[in-house]
Design a protein around this nucleic acid. Structure first.
Lengths: 206, 206, 206, 206
DNA sequence: CATGAATGAGTCTTCATTCAT
DNA sequence: AATGAATGAAGACTCATTCAT
């Protein structure tokens, strides 16, 4: 009876489970207020066990952040920046990315709290990783823009690198918004339409 | 010599000085890593003195945040949303706000670190204040857009409220960028030009 | 206008007023929880002023205790231990002392809290003073008993010194009880009757 | 090896050891002057360990008080209030209780310091527990007296409830005395004899 | 003399981390 | 491997006391 509760073998899913718990708890209480014991308690394991999988608390946060950023990056980098040849194709592509990103943050509201609030405050190094991800995303967006300029369906005078960051700002503002909203589903189309309209045509009347 | 109406906590300069120090230190080390003793040490005062002006460490952070948000709000709300009657006027207004905002964050790089990273992670309540400021700024931006739609120089079909948030996202991404950059001065015109171009005309070729 | 509020001359009543306030506040919050600022606040004076009249907080407590013990001693030592020549006279004397003591503690419920609880815990030295007062009261009681034995109206075999302490225990238990009771007036006669009956005749049926 | 029902806080001996140390230290230095570090130091354990067994310092004091009062209650309530049928039996009973109580306080002089001085000053709530214990003891004493009145060997006109408190006052004064005396053993018989003589027969000559 | 701003010694308390079992 | 008891560094906070005005 007792032996069924005792150690078996190293569980490779255990690490993931800890990260899941940390993802939830860090988002719920904030990194500083969350304790290692909270993570372990969520999983019903001893808190010493966490140290078999991570060096320390900060290391858990780093892994949580990396996983979160990877998940976001998978959406951002899912499309091929050079695949489109006209405005309509690009617009469709942007809409697709927008929808996936929106759905990602809507499905896991903790995600936005972590990347926009909690984990950026942990550490200079984590902030740096966040920044690096921003740069990566900006590079991707820039590639899209560069492709459009090269193929002639985007303005020739576009400051591609700067505009890429501006565009990302619009998009991530939406993601942050989603993370704050109780039920963000109803706003999905509205948000995407607003972003796409602004991005392609601006606000000026024609 | 006779101060019949001396403030509860005597010296308002002292309070302000503590906030200045906290602004600097919180941005340098992060809220969690900064100690009350660090603030006091920066000013060469006893750390007990801090408690004559603030209830506790979190209270200092709240005051720092409020001051920071007020400073930003002063720029954001400096212009009159109803003052412009044509596209050129509005464009000039946006440029002015952009420049002032850019200069604000360039002149005090700690400001961005505080509002975009450190202070939003302190507390649910501080995150809420940050959110409230976002809402205020969005309301202001929406007023500008509504004015333009009403006067006919902005698209009639604009989703004003959502677009306002999108626009703020672009702008604050710039501010965040500025706060990360060693010497942000050279990029000023480039940023503003990119934002204004995107905002008014979009990226699509004509 | 302002000068009327400024320093005049040393006020000899000031010290008494501080002791009054300390008497009240110490009994209300306990010595440890009460601050010098509380005493000063009660009087509407600056808390630095307390240090013109007392060396430190403990010194205030010592003075409060001394005053309290003096007040009690005045009652205890008001009668002449050698004045009575018979049982009836002694009984009347004990009743008088009991009534006065009861009234003293009933009129100032803080008094009991201070001498039975708060001030005995401050310090070894204050506990010692409390003990010395106990000894003094015991000596007085012993003198009464010795007088009665000498004059033949009290048992010849009385262990005067020990019995004196026992008697004081009965009496001060009443005082402690009074200090805990919201309105102790109604119980006065009952208490005194019980003490006197026990003291003179014991509980055994005749 | 398999403790399927291990206590929340593992080692009950450790908890007891901390209470022992606290008992000693609180009595030696007083509650206010004693630090958690003193308790831990006495045991040679880390001071954080104390917090595995108690919520805070006050909680330790509460547990020390409860244990002390339980120990006293065990003596006070050891006899059966209805067991005696005549004066001699009751007198023997009182002597037994007196002896045990005397021995208890003589064997552990800290006990008296704690219950008569230090722990009653900690807190309103602890004072309340002390008071509740007083009430319990008074109820017990009242039961003895009531039995004696019912069986006719105590005065019929006894105010049982008030007299019970008076009697407890005598007894606990002895306990307090014991706690103050360097070597209280020699005084044992003298004290008990004085209490019993007073209690049963009073001081009046026959 | 009175004031109250400033001070900093002193403590409690938390919790990440270690390590014997 | 897993556990959780033990540890102690670290820091927030209080408040008696001082002293310049």
């Amino acid at each position: 009876m007792c032996h069924s509760l005792m150690a078996r073998t190293a569980d490779p899913n255990r690490r993931e489970a800890i990260l899941d718990a940390a993802h939830t708890i860090f988002a719920r209480k904030g990194y500083a207020a969350a304790g290692i014991a909270d993570l372990a308690g969520e999983l019903g394991i001893g808190h010493g066990t966490v140290y078999r999988y991570f060096d320390n608390k900060r290391d858990v946060a780093a892994a949580v952040l990396d996983r979160a950023l990877t998940r976001i990056a998978e959406v951002v980098t899912a499309e091929d920046p050079g695949a489109t040849d006209d405005l309509a194709g690009y617009r469709a592509q942007v809409e697709r990315i927008g929808q996936r990103l929106y759905d990602l943050f809507a499905a896991d509201r903790a995600l936005g709290r972590l990347v926009f609030f909690d984990l950026g405050a942990v550490d200079d190094e984590l902030r740096e990783r966040l920044h690096a991800a921003h740069e990566l995303f900006a590079a991707y967006t820039a590639a899209y823009l560069r492709n459009g300029v090269a193929k002639g369906f985007l303005r020739a005078d576009l400051d591609v690198d700067t505009t890429a960051r501006v565009v990302n700002g619009m998009i991530f503002e939406g993601a942050a918004q989603v993370s704050r909203t109780e039920d963000p589903r109803p706003l999905r189309e509205r948000w995407i339409r607003a972003v796409v309209a602004l991005l392609f045509d601006g606000v000026a009347a024609r």
